[in-house]
């Protein structure tokens, strides 16, 4: 059992603020704060003391309204943004002994290329739109050190096959694809180096319902098949209910409630969560 108790990813007291902060709002608790915005100095506290663990094979959902700090949190995890304070440990990197946020940018790039995959809400951020789909996947493989064209083509084709992109379109650029297809190419790209951890940021937002369903199906299948851990951000409770084992609710940069997804949805404790659950159509 002990093996299962080691978290894949462990986040401790992650803070992210935009602005220097002032004597009135230091510490993040003050009468001058409107939500997470300081009226005196204009600082925004996007993430405040966020801590959580992700265990092997688990899907962790993060819900919250827009502006609650979900995406900022994901960007910090993928080093797209620098954190203001906090620690992160990955079991697959240096045995979970090194704080990822304090590694050099080269090392962070190594972690991005080898131990993590990310799917962005907007495919433009995750894909090179003018390069071929298979090239996009190869980009990750090259970054992880592969210099074998045959192997990369084979692996890229297999991955695109897995996400239901027709083989004859593999050399086409994602800019010619529909939104759902672009999203599936992104997923294939994120999976290319068999990362133990996958970050999904609002992957189905903006897709029509049938496409949404097929993308969700795909994620579910891949997760079962490859047993990867997933951190999944969404404001859509339906998506969270379908995929997440455990859920965090965020509001104004803070985690206000966490627990098993069923528990959160059936018996919400925090007023905001109650409102969120009850507004579900």
């Amino acid at each position: 059992m002990a093996v299962f108790e080691v978290p894949v990813l462990s986040i401790k007291n992650l803070n992210k603020q935009y602005g220097p902060g002032c004597s009135q709002c230091k510490g993040g608790e003050s009468a001058y704060l409107v939500k997470n915005y300081c009226q005196v100095c204009g600082t925004v506290y996007a993430c405040r003391d966020v801590s959580f663990d992700v265990f092997p094979g688990e899907v962790l959902g993060i819900v919250g309204e827009s502006g609650s700090g979900k995406s900022t949190l994901m960007q910090c995890l993928y080093f797209d943004q620098e954190v203001s304070a906090g620690e992160a440990y990955l079991a697959d990197y240096e045995n979970g002994m090194k704080n990822l946020f304090q590694e050099s940018s080269q090392q962070q790039r190594y972690i991005r290329n080898h131990v993590m995959g990310k799917v962005y809400q907007n495919p433009i951020l995750g894909l090179k739109m003018n390069f071929s789909s298979i090239g996009n996947i190869a980009e990750n493989l090259i970054a992880a050190g592969s210099r074998d064209v045959g192997m990369m083509e084979g692996k890229g084709t297999a991955l695109l096959n897995k996400v239901n992109i027709p083989v004859h379109r593999r050399k086409e650029a994602p800019k010619n694809f529909s939104g759902g297809m672009q999203q599936r190419v992104q997923i294939a790209k994120a999976l290319s180096n068999n990362p133990p951890l996958l970050l999904l940021d609002e992957v189905t937002t903006g897709l029509d319902l049938s496409v949404q369903a097929s993308v969700l199906d795909l994620i579910k299948n891949l997760q079962r098949e490859l047993n990867i851990s997933i951190v999944l951000v969404s404001h859509d409770l339906g998506v969270i209910r379908m995929l997440a084992d455990r859920t965090l609710v965020m509001l104004e940069g803070k985690v206000i409630e966490q627990g098993l997804t069923d528990q959160i949805l059936e018996d919400p404790q925090h007023p905001y969560t109650q409102q969120l659950v009850h507004s579900l159509l």
Partner: peptide
Amino acid sequence: WLMLFEQIM
């Protein structure tokens, strides 16, 4: 390398 890979593709 990706640019060269694209040419090969």
